[in-house]
Design a protein around this nucleic acid. Structure first.
Lengths: 338, 338
DNA sequence: ACTTGGCACTCGAAGGTCAGGAGTGCCAGT
DNA sequence: ACTGGCACTCCTGACCTTCGAGTGCCAAGT
């Protein structure tokens, strides 16, 4: 159906189109790549490729442009992820290594990815549902007011003010704190509700009302923040890539957490496996014309969250994929270390 | 120099141009506003206005367009801040009232402002330098590793991992925590360095190395985060406002914290006083063509930080100013309450 | 001393025409 | 199965024309 030469032609078309942003014709193809055949032959192959839906022409008598299907074939079978240069690796290490807390890691990652790929970078915060409790802190800030700080093993810090129904002494706060930490230390956030279910019963009755309030706020926090946190950066790169149409739509999509999350895609089995969504493959109509390259990241073999970049379908997939993969790995390392 | 009618003409020009986005001519002016004079008269006035630099024509024989100077005069003398409708006020209250922590307040504020004004919203986190310590928490997470959490009265939470030079017992951590809080509670962040300067001396000698490390990290945190935190949203609105040129530049400016900060401007004497920077008045060349409307916000009469919107110079100043002022006030209230 | 109607003039926007050229499809020849 | 040749398509850019909104100025009117 598609012999080797036709595949080579498709690859050449993708590469040329990506680098020139102009429909590519048979003659220039024959010139730039030494395929060893004449333009006429290439024309025949192109006709086949077009028939099968891998390429298309914007109008009669223009060159060919890859379709989404064409890019898909290219990504799956015709290209290899391009590893980063040594200098780039070092730059990543330096830049990410300087991060001082989780917020910092995420912000830096976004900047880094955007700069590296010259596209829009999207990074999800380590998912709460896949984190465990490192510490719960309870502080008495007034007679009837506590502050709770929840710290996860991934470095996320959630904090809440709690108004309790009755005066509470420093001692009971200390006790409650100890009990909470004893029960929850290392506990997966998803298991917290069941773990704390019977907690009030194990407390002296006079502490129960306060404990109940604290616990309800704690659970509420987990629910509230169940919605994942996600950020993007490098929007300026969008304007640079002379976007055919719909820059508006793209920006809108980027500002919708929900859409963004779906874009990054489902968790994959193995972390840092690359997911590529090309044009119409992705789940949001405003993003025809854009592709997403994403990967999971995590410390160890557990995928904590995802990150990736979004750019025109006409992007340099090998390079982009290389950058995303490398960054995902480094971020994982950084998180594991802290 | 500029009699009342000329001012009225200028006002009319600004209003028409803002609403139509097309150079406005003498005839349509005479039609739409009842100025009681003929187009010819208006032409004469326009000539004067142009001579004085308040308006300009894109090319000979086109209508007139306000210059930055013209907008300035309009804002200063010809317009009144337009208060929000009752429905809008309620919407703000509802939307902002649901916020659950500082991050949430800021995120919601950005969304709200962007939606209300249909422009790009910029919000600065409450400045650390103008906050005071509510609580310092010290947690022992491993034998040689502590976690420090710094909570300010404005709700900001900063957190750091500290590797200490020697094993440290729970008791010394508790002691150090108590001492720290005793010394720092309510202390302005700017005063922290001097306040803690002599702290190690007041500790038993065996605790000093650890204390020194902790303090150095604490001070470091204050310095690191001295750079203010600032976010923006509503970039999609930029694409909608068919920006003359330089959408690229604007997006770039928005992604530069430093530029963004300078845009919001210096602290003003009275909180929630409105600052308006029009086109070339603002300190960044990429932003000719855009105006910034900003206000300070804070709980009580202390300005904690600033917020505002950025849009084309051709914006509806009265409405925008009204929205910014209202939101700034509400945010102040929300922060004061929590 | 302003204001006004009239009038000639300017200049961009929109549309039409035309040549050039890159690219195609097809066919006949090797 | 490949290749050269050829007619055809249709976009691009340059150039021109028309059209109309808007101006500046002047002379007349109040």
């Amino acid at each position: 159906m598609l012999d080797d030469r036709k595949l080579a032609v498709l690859r050449a078309i993708v590469e040329d189109y990506v680098s020139t942003n102009e429909p590519v014709g048979s003659k220039s193809l024959a010139d730039r790549h030494n395929l060893g055949v004449s333009p006429a032959t290439i024309r025949n192959d192109m006709a086949t490729l077009e028939e099968q839906g891998y390429i298309t022409q914007p109008h009669t008598s223009a060159g060919r442009v890859p379709t989404d299907k064409g890019y898909r074939l290219f990504v799956d079978r015709l290209s290899q992820v391009k590893p980063l240069s040594g200098a780039e690796r070092r730059a990543i290490e330096n830049f990410l290594g300087g991060a001082v807390d989780l917020d910092d890691v995420v912000t830096r990652t976004v900047r880094l990815l955007a700069q590296l790929t010259r596209q829009v970078a999207v990074v999800q915060y380590p998912s709460l549902t896949r984190s465990s409790v490192r510490h719960v802190e309870l502080v008495r800030v007034a007679e009837r007011r506590l502050m709770m700080v929840l710290i996860t093993n991934t470095g996320r810090v959630e904090q809440r003010i709690i108004d309790v129904p009755e005066n509470v002494s420093e001692e009971s706060v200390a006790h409650l704190r100890a009990v909470l930490n004893g029960a929850l230390d290392g506990c997966w956030l998803t298991d917290v509700p069941t773990t704390v279910a019977d907690l009030p019963e194990r407390l002296p009755s006079e502490e129960r009302p306060v404990a109940a309030t604290v616990l309800s706020v704690l659970l509420e926090t987990l629910v509230d923040k169940h919605e994942e946190k996600i950020v993007f950066g490098g929007a300026a790169n969008l304007a640079a890539a002379d976007f055919s149409v719909g820059l508006r739509e793209v920006l809108e999509a980027l500002e919708e957490q929900v859409v963004l999350l779906r874009l990054l895609g489902e968790t994959t089995a193995e972390p840092s496996a690359l997911t590529v969504r090309i044009g119409s493959e992705n789940p949001y109509s405003g993003l025809r014309g854009t592709s997403i390259v994403a990967a999971g990241y995590g410390s160890g073999d557990k995928e904590l969250a995802r990150l990736g970049v979004l750019g025109p379908t006409r992007m340099d997939y090998p390079v982009t994929m290389g950058a995303v993969r490398a960054v995902a790995r480094y971020v994982g390392q950084i998180l594991a270390a802290s």
